[in-house]
């Protein structure tokens, strides 16, 4: 029940900042561009520049440093793992140390550091996007961004609506799963003892009721949406329509100028 009351909407941190107010399309575009650019510009000074951009943006949008650092935690393992691979398998003549057949070279370590930092910066950029953009804005932005693809049959509106509904129902389904588990535990279900197969089997009494519930729920939700005049994306508008104005132009220009500076810096090094 209240155990999962702490689950928030994605990672969104509401605040009244210039960056929060930017059109989600603008933020999506900048994020995608910066991802590409970070991969192109791999030198350490360039990455220092990117890092400073991230710190600047976080400051301006009132995102606490703690939240930013924590956001990369889930994939820190991945970053460390790929870095280790790089250290040992890049090859190179200047061997620092070796463990059996594994040899760590100076070149390898540098590559590893570079790759690790790149990945870390990428994660921070996407985290900034989700910190400053509410899930519905994000799905609106994605819908608009993929809009041109509808001509080729891509269901942009449907995908965005699915995202909205999924986000809406995650907390509800959490609660429901918890309740069903509790009900079965009260009837003596045991999810902890026994081998892997036995434990997997023990979840059947949880999964079946959950599926039944989800299908029922989906059925009523579909009726309720229809009753509230939903007819798919056709004719549907938004309360806060996306507006691309001078703020977005300024932000994009500033980003382009900044990127140009970083790329030239990268070249010179």
């Amino acid at each position: 029940m209240s155990l999962i009351k702490g689950v928030t909407l994605g990672q969104y941190i509401p605040a009244d900042s210039f960056i929060h107010k930017l059109d989600p399309r603008c933020k999506l575009l900048i994020t995608v561009l910066s991802m590409i650019l970070i991969f192109i510009s791999g030198s350490f000074p360039a990455m220092a520049m990117w890092a400073s951009l991230i710190i600047f943006t976080a400051k301006r949008s009132q995102i606490p440093a703690k939240a930013l650092i924590k956001s990369a935690k889930p994939i820190l393992v991945l970053i460390i793992f790929t870095s280790l691979l790089n250290i040992f398998f890049t090859g190179g003549s200047n061997i620092i140390f070796s463990i059996g057949p594994l040899k760590a070279s100076v070149e390898g370590t540098v590559t590893a550091l570079r790759m690790g930092l790149r990945l870390y910066l990428l994660v921070l950029f996407t985290a900034l996007l989700t910190f400053t953009t509410s899930p519905s804005e994000l799905s609106d932005g994605l819908e608009a961004a993929f809009g041109p693809l509808t001509r080729f049959g891509f269901p942009a509106h449907e995908v965005a609506m699915m995202m909205t509904i999924a986000l809406r129902f995650i907390p509800t389904l959490f609660e429901e799963t918890e309740r069903i588990i509790n009900a079965q535990v009260s009837r003596g279900a045991d999810f902890v003892s026994g081998g892997l197969i036995k434990r997997a089997k023990a979840y059947i009494p949880v999964l079946i009721p959950l599926f039944v519930l989800v299908f029922k729920r989906a059925d009523t939700l579909a009726s309720a949406m229809e009753a509230r005049c939903y007819r798919g994306g056709k004719g549907r508008v938004r309360m806060y329509p996306l507006t691309w104005g001078s703020a977005e132009n300024k932000a994009l220009t500033a980003f382009v100028v900044f990127s140009a500076a970083v790329i030239s810096l990268n070249r010179c090094m």
Binding site: S136, T220, L221, A224, R228, R238, M239, P241
Partner: peptide
């Protein structure tokens, strides 16, 4: 109520019907 609320934020859900009607913002 769980079966009929579509959006995750209070005002966004309230707007769902009028949005489908295609009203002005």
């Amino acid at each position: 109520p769980e079966d009929q609320i579509v959006a995750s934020v209070v005002e966004e859900d309230t707007a769902f019907g009028p949005e489908n009607l295609g009203l002005r913002s």
